[in-house]
Design a protein around this nucleic acid. Structure first.
Lengths: 397, 397
DNA sequence: GGTATTAGTTGGATTCAACAACATATGGCC
DNA sequence: GGCCATATGTTGTTGAATCCAACTAATACC
């Protein structure tokens, strides 16, 4: 019947996982590098790489001509043609991506929508994109699954959406629907949580084990945290709603029912109002702010930055992060008045901890959420590479 | 020379760790229980228990007479005579404890101090207690080390104290001094962090993987969090300063330099002022509050609870904990107006998450910090039980 | 007192990584 | 062109640790 369970405590699996994870996160490495980093024996590394290659998860290329003594060591790559489908439903569009191991975004397709998409719309659009991409998909070694990044509260254990106000979803079994509709295993999580994961793996916080991430968009402020190298999930997977930290109890009411939440006080809408603009993407905002030198803009940016600093200082006291990453309009705001946030946080953090933290702008652009959503899918693969054989091969019939 | 490094990836060590950790946390278990819980083979469990017994870390007792069919299975206990020295310096006293595996507090000795103890005082007092306890120590199988719980910012990696305002310490290498002074390996961490650990392992939050803990004392509000079953430490181990979350930006200045921190707004001092008392321990406070039925007391407790609710709701949105544990005067406050916190948090938490969280009073009393500090020492032992042979046997010459 | 049930014990069988030894490949250096 | 340093590939051996099957032991129930 089944191939017999592995005896022992699956050392082989752990080691395969270690090597593949390394390749996925750090990019191509030579076999010599792998032996040094992992501390395994040459022969062990050889066997592990061989097995990963046989599983279709890695491949080797001729050694690069680097002027060094000795026999050149072939480069081992995570196979970027092992891919995940990333789905990101948002108010005005559903973005679908094809993302390979190593974080390569092969394709990004945006499907505009007049009204916020329903779950059924989302599944149908993803399905449509996959059908169009059939030739490209056929060129892939394997499609490992579907990952969704959702602007809302997502139970990251079962992939159901408790509440996504801007999409007007509540209690939707998104992952189950995606899985049924696309014939692939599916997972889902909060968009900003996935953003924090992506930035910590491939972006502004590479190598940091404790990261706080905040992203500002038209629909509010989302957040995520990396704690001891792992994404903060919470009891049901709803953790990281950093935008609903109260920074001004006498402030204006928030849609969540409280007053003066960070996302009501620090908002793109208020910035745009001062700039007398209706809409602006991140680049347009940055350009408009650079042009405008009115005292009103200065006052508003300082007001927003100072309130943001209150929240960030709270987070520093709570999480003691090494790095804070700011995305979306928060990044623009931060760059606009360089040093203001740093000074406030350094001043307010208890015991001088505020001066130990690096505040930086998000490094990943539009691919951020696709990479994060794909990570959701790759997590299983990376944790147990040997299980690959059991997965279904083809998507869509 | 040295006993030879363990080959392979030390499966045995991992499994020993698993069994011992289970015994430590869940109390005595039969061998049959262990096989069921761990999923190991009977023979494997037998071998592991045998090895733990040989290392002096566990022992077996005759099976209890429970009326069941079949051969009775002997009970396996973590050896409570493998112990740690717990040290807790505070403003008015240094408490020293002898704590065994399984969380048994064998001894608790309080050394009163007229003025806040220095690090040298702390070491000397601990040394004095150990000398007095020499007969009892001789009865122990092994003293695994020293753990200190400090009211202040402690770098939990190297056990140095960055800042402990109430003790007037700053930049003190406490763990190093304790280690040198007592001749045992030493570690240190923040007191409330250790409290959260103790409550999650043996107290009000047993079994919960995501916990927020807040403790209110005369010197302020300390906090800690358990995230995914592990204590939140942060980049340098300073995480968990939950008492310095701003709940009222227009509030009174805090010693940390900001305004309206939780611990300035919600304080024992203000409660005592309303009660017209100078000092009160937890029981006295509870009694005094039960006697007093003035509208002033009701107003003040409600004010404090409502501000506490702001902070707790922030924490719920940030951490999505399953349980919140309140210790010290915060527990008294919570009990005084039953349901008020729950209602406010349920109302304010985003997406109804506030109603999913259990708010409970701390279950561990005076032993809390000793148990937590001991856990700091046991962590190493539990992670690698086989390493025990290498440890020094006797404390103090 | 017999039987069913549950659990401890013992001696292989199995899996897998580490290691050693030898052959091979590549490039710098003299 | 010969030598050296670096690095891989292959093969067989060794050792660690688990699992399995058969046997023995202890208890309750009829």
């Amino acid at each position: 019947m089944s191939a017999g369970t592995s005896p022992g405590t699956d050392i082989r699996g752990q080691n395969l996982s270690r090597v593949l994870t390394l390749l996925h996160r750090r990019g191509p490495l030579s076999r010599a590098d792998l032996t040094r980093i992992c501390g395994f024996n040459r022969s062990t590394v050889g066997a592990l790489v061989g097995e990963l290659a046989a599983l279709g998860l890695a491949y080797e290329t001729d050694p690069p001509a680097l002027k060094r003594v000795g026999r050149p060591s072939p480069l081992v790559h995570a196979n970027e043609r092992v891919a995940a489908i990333a789905v990101h439903p948002d108010v005005d569009a559903v973005t679908v991506g094809l993302v390979g191991l190593g974080g390569t975004v092969h394709r990004r397709v945006r499907c505009d929508a007049g009204t916020p998409p329903t779950v059924a719309d989302t599944v149908a659009m993803a399905r449509g994109v996959l059908e169009d991409l059939q030739p490209e998909l056929a060129g892939m070694t394997r499609i490992a699954g579907v990952g969704a990044a959702v602007p809302g509260l997502v139970n990251s254990h079962d992939g159901s959406v408790l509440l996504a106000p801007h999409l007007m979803w509540s209690g939707e079994p998104l992952a189950a629907e995606l899985s049924a509709g696309l014939g692939l295993p599916a997972r889902a999580a909060n968009d900003a949580n996935l953003g924090s994961l992506a930035e910590s793996l491939f972006g502004a916080a590479v190598g940091a084990s404790d990261v706080v991430y905040l992203n500002g968009s038209a629909s509010g402020i989302g957040g995520g945290a990396i704690v001891g190298g792992m994404p903060l999930r919470g009891a049901a997977g709803y953790a990281g709603e950093l935008g609903h930290t109260v920074v001004n109890p006498q402030g204006i009411p928030c849609h969540c029912g409280r007053r003066g939440c960070l996302e009501t006080e620090v908002s793109l809408g208020r910035l745009l109002a001062v700039l007398k603009l209706d809409h602006a993407d991140q680049d347009q905002l940055e350009a408009a702010m650079a042009r405008d030198n009115s005292p009103e803009l200065v006052a508003e940016t300082h007001r927003q930055l100072d309130l943001l600093a209150v929240a960030l200082t709270n987070f520093v006291n709570i999480f003691n992060p090494g790095t804070i990453v700011l995305g979306g309009f928060l990044g623009v705001l931060h760059s606009f008045a360089a040093g203001r946030l740093e000074a406030a946080v350094a001043d307010g953090g208890i015991g001088g901890l505020g001066s130990e933290v690096t505040i930086s702008r998000a490094a990943l652009g539009t691919d951020l959420l696709l990479v994060g959503a794909a990570e959701l899918v790759f997590a299983g693969l990376l944790a147990d590479p040997a299980s690959v054989g059991a997965l279904p091969q083809a998507a869509l019939r």
